[in-house]
Nucleic acid binder design. Structure first.
Lengths: 193, 193, 193, 193
DNA sequence: AAGTAATCGAGACGGTACGTCTCGTCTTTAG
DNA sequence: CTAAAGACGAGACGTACCGTCTCGATTACTT
């Protein structure tokens, strides 16, 4: 019977949200996560309260802004087709490496914030890390089903090694090239069977 | 033949340095890296300027304090002996996992700061990450020389996978057990030869 | 016809201003001009920024607080009436001496600050010294018009002597009694005509 | 019978005292009394402790430095001769005005410090103000004895007016010319007899 | 010649205050 | 209700001085 409240008062200005997200992503890219909230609202031409009406913390704002960007979306490998899974893994890694290379600084800073703020850590891993882990785990399980790798190995551990290598090299400023992607796939599928 | 300049002026009070490092490490463990400098100097019973006379930033103080602790020191595997290198690797990983498990929060927070402050990043990796990478690379090269793993594989990439898995699991709160250590060594030495 | 912009944003809390002025005047009276800004804001129960939102320096705050006090206001002598000007001058001097005696320490300290800070000096003399000088100069000119003192004498110089004597005796801790006031008036009007 | 203790230990380096006084007077002239002690010892090329070995406060140092300067010494009027005392007073005032004009800023700042620090106030008035007051009082008493001014008038009050006018005009940045000096003498001796 | 005592430079130290900055909340007027 | 503007309490930050202290070296008098 809920009385549809319809809507009361001045409607939210969507332009304000957009301006905030754009300002946030731009300033974080420029100056790192340390930018002040004041700087963000000034760049967005928006009042302080308007920001707090939408996001409780800087981290949530930046996360939202980050995920709105297309290049954070990975394409799921086609497990219906008949391509060798080693090849699919290499393609996937190359794609992810590309994203990371173009936005490494931002990722670094989000990862840092995730270590400091447990709430943010949860969201960051749910929305960013886990989906990617799932993709790789599925791919490796499929490879086991197709007998391309040994069924006794642990797909989750292999994923730790793959994504771990990715993060590790990002954090210590080592390159993430296509060759590295191929070699990583090779390491996992080494020995065949 | 340099004329040792002896020493000029009132000598630094070593007790103040020690008190600051102890207070820093204690408070960072308790409250995370976000503790205020004010809290640290109060806990140490030291003046603000005294801290700034010794360290330019909180990061440098915390880093110094951290490295003074014994449990950050790993024992280098004995490559003189005849033990299988797979076994030496597993032992090394178990030991490192132990340190990480007992000081995970602090490591997390230092890693985060390293992402934010490039100067600190450099120091952190030079003093903490690189030495560990070197140990593993040496061990793997030795294993190749002993024909325990294929000489064509890239020891540096394998190190990325091993330490990457370690950090990755730390960052996403996955367990780092002895079993995992053994499995990781198994993955690298899989197939033998 | 200027479009009154009305006012935007949260208005200043007048109570905070009042509390700051009261705290300032009280503490300066107690401890001298050297009181810390911190002590003032704590006594006023107000945040540090709130003070800086209103006054740029301690001197401006104290000056405002000082001038808000009734006892700094002198009553202009009645030059419409027919009283002897010598008598009006004596009355004026007695009144001013009274103020100075009750707030000598504060005046001393403001005068000192005026010597140190040129900006404050300007304001202090515009708001405090000049109005008083004007009153006496007007009175003396009127006395000259009424032929009570020689028209050839310089009213400005006589004012220097009168107010100078006042400050001089304040600064060297000599008494400022009603008798002195009368004698000073007597010195100026000596000889009559 | 006081056993002359002779002197023990390394004697004070007189050059250090001189350098400190010169640096102090120079910097106070340049930047006002607010110069830091650190700036003074650096300009003097002397250690911090050396300053404190000689003077307890900045005020005492500056005062010493100030009084060492020749132009602070006034010549006592010749009351032996037969010159009209009005003329002697005018000469004295011209001389003092000259000193004040050439060092007004420094005097201003010393006066300010005297208001803030009661100990310094005492010294300042004993060494600077009182001797000058004495000179004028003696002169005026002599004039009374010679029947040049009325014996019933109060020499001390007249001195307050004369020196008060001097300080007042200094403090409010009004000129102190030879003409003003003559006019002041004229005011005191007005009417003759 | 050895001992004693004070000075000097250099600079560390605890303390206090400063003015700026950020954060997240609150209070007003306007739409 | 929402927006813009900006005041507000809280409190950290890094800097500047202050006056004292500690050290090693130096310089003189005293024994």
């Amino acid at each position: 019977m809920a009385d549809e409240p319809k809507h009361v008062g001045r409607p939210k200005n969507e332009a304000a949200s957009t301006a905030l997200k754009q300002a946030a992503i731009m300033l974080v890219r420029e100056q790192g996560y340390g930018v002040s909230i004041t700087a963000i609202i000034e760049a967005a031409g928006v009042s302080r309260q308007t920001l707090y009406n939408r996001w409780a913390t800087k981290a949530e704002l930046v996360l939202d802004a980050f995920f709105e960007q297309a290049q954070t979306q990975v394409s799921t490998p086609d497990l219906e087709g008949d391509a060798p899974r080693r090849r699919l893994l290499a393609i996937y890694l190359r794609e992810v490496f590309g994203h990371v290379n173009s936005d490494g600084e931002l990722l670094r800073t989000l990862l840092a914030e995730a270590q400091i703020d447990p709430g943010f850590r949860k969201v960051f891993f749910e929305r960013f890390v886990s989906p990617r882990a799932e993709i790789v785990i599925d791919l490796l399980r499929d490879a086991q089903a197709r007998n391309e790798i040994d069924a006794a190995r642990d797909p989750e551990l292999m994923t730790s090694m793959l994504h771990g290598a990715l993060w590790y090299r990002l954090l210590i400023d080592q390159p993430l090239t296509d060759d590295i992607a191929d070699e990583l796939a090779g390491e996992i599928f080494r020995g065949g069977r």
